[in-house]
Design a protein around this nucleic acid. Structure first.
Lengths: 339, 339
DNA sequence: CTGAAAGCGCTTACAG
DNA sequence: CTGAAAGCGCTTACAG
């Protein structure tokens, strides 16, 4: 008998069926070592009592927490509007949930805190592994996870990293496709506004865009680095437009950046797309909020999150990091780059 | 000696200092029962070894998980663009983190799943309590958490609920302020587009807006219920505008709704604010993305999350649910309701 | 194949 | 004030 309110344990089942707790554990975990008849009676009792395994008890035995950690190190003000993070979190949670795991989340405005949080999580045995995003050039977090030996997957890493699982992507083809699309519309002064150079992905795209531009036009493109904040994006754009030979098209490093510019076109003194074509890296419903709607390169955040999770789970099982590709980016043409 | 890679436990500290594990536990938790000298030596050893408590071990002893659960039951497609959820999650995480707790998150497209997830979390001892949002009229989750006896705080509940902590707000004054603001600009045909009637907050605001409108104008206002999806919001707006005496101002139930309408004003055949003034419930940077910028009633999501968390923690400690008020809403006037 | 026992890393009621 | 021991709910190596 289990008094109401108390949640049943394997001891209750064992008493009910008249076997040991060990036998119950074997039966419930589908391991050999218990007769078919006993197993059936144990499963029936578990069902009848409404037994579910205690996650913490199992974790303590396993020395595994069942959780995967993600530290989002972006300003809170950005988090609300930049759709990427919510989508990433939802995607990771879905993939982890499907494997009976959960996501441990921390949000901090200060990037330097991340390594400290990892250290605490690891020593408190809160996480079995980590998902890293927004890798920086010379990222201090890499040393931290390597030193501590935390199984980790780096999502969107520029390339394979020693000891980590990585989900990498080659942005070159996408950036060439961006240039091709715009050049096909008659543009030949095509600039780019990039995220902060401190981000590995921004630095890499910066270099790859330059290379693609040189191949196509034989010259270096104009590119600006800026933070993902509205007024700085507008300032960077204004500076590009102040050039004696201003660009007629700009590729932005996020959908939010591009949407901000299209929304503020009048203040910038340009018409989109007549004076300035605008193309976004990353797509989201934000791109459909402004007029003209914003052309964008979409990628499948859910799929990339699932890829990262499966690599990490595999690494937890085998001890060996794995590598995979980001989902490809596909262009959706809308009004902001109309012909 | 603790071999490298292995994380130290209180047994290591006990051996190092030459006392029992119990003494170590008392010392580390600041409880009486150990001499000042021993305590100091224990703390020093813990520091030297880099000891941190194992969360799962502590949870198993305490029979408390240290986690609070949130199930977000909105379509994933909405989650990316609607800033509220990411802000709520970040706010809850911050408040919980400050208390050494963590947020367990699940995202599901299907509202019916939530009660099932609560049940699983509870029986697996994954959570100590829950945060409920987006209460529905006759919400099946209420019966579930009451039956199971899960400590729960309902954020944005219409009023006190038996057995639950609640953070409630009176929307009446805000809706009257909305009408006053618009009437002050000369509007007297003021409609409202509301979220689905199934949501308790939408139903309540619907009724309170009607009451406020009757008080001010002596007539019932036109109001429409719609899902938080772009085309349905536009359809509802179009229907209002098709009236022989169309409204000259509309109050929308979210910033995203209002921004969608302002972004699509041309398709709707209206100029904002000349033909149609637009006012949003909830503020976010989205409101600054379109032109004209959208006037909105802001509230402090972070503060409300912190309030919910502190009520829940108090309830976990005392067993008694508490009640508090939502942060007040403040109007930011922008171009969409310019004079 | 089966069962009794130890162990995961903590906390705490209880006896000296 | 101090210490030895049992317990939280599982898993699993080991002996019958």
């Amino acid at each position: 008998m289990v008094e109401p309110g108390r949640r049943p344990t394997i001891a209750d089942i064992a008493r009910e069926v008249g076997v040991t707790k060990g036998a119950v554990s074997f039966a419930l975990n589908g391991r050999p070592g218990v007769s078919a008849d006993t197993r059936a009676r144990i499963l029936a009792a578990a069902e009848r009592l409404g037994w579910r395994p205690s996650t913490v008890a199992r974790s303590l035995s396993n020395l595994r927490s069942g959780s995967v950690g993600l530290v989002v190190t972006r300003p809170r003000s950005l988090l609300g509007v930049e759709p990427f993070y919510m989508r990433l979190i939802a995607g990771l949670e879905r993939a982890l949930h499907a494997d009976g795991r959960s996501l441990l989340l921390a949000v901090t405005d200060h990037p330097g805190d991340a390594a400290e949080i990892y250290r605490a999580w690891w020593s408190e045995r809160r996480v079995d592994g980590l998902v890293l995003t927004d890798l920086r050039t010379d990222d201090p977090r890499l040393a931290a996870v390597t030193d501590l030996g935390i199984p980790t997957v780096a999502l969107g890493a520029p390339g394979p990293l020693p000891g980590l699982s990585t989900v990498t992507g080659d942005d070159g083809p996408t950036l060439r496709a961006a240039l091709d699309h715009l050049a096909g519309l008659g543009h030949h002064r095509i600039a780019r506004v990039s995220g902060p150079a401190g981000f590995a992905h921004a630095a890499r795209r910066h270099a790859e865009f330059a290379a693609a531009h040189r191949t196509l036009f034989g010259t270096d493109p104009r590119q600006a680095h800026t933070r993902y904040v509205a007024d700085q994006v507008l300032a960077a754009t204004r500076e590009l437009l102040d050039d004696p030979e201003p660009p007629t098209a700009v590729v932005y490093d996020s959908d939010l950046m591009a949407v901000t510019v299209v929304g503020s076109a009048a203040e910038l003194g340009v018409r989109v797309p007549a004076d300035l074509a605008v193309l976004a890296w990353d797509d989201s419903p934000l791109c459909e909020l402004v007029r003209p709607r914003v052309s964008a390169f979409a990628h499948d955040v859910d799929a990339d999150g699932a890829t990262a999770v499966s690599l990490l789970i595999e690494q937890l099982r085998t001890g060996t990091p794995g590598h995979a590709e980001l989902s490809p980016r596909t262009l959706t043409v809308r009004g902001s780059t109309a012909g």
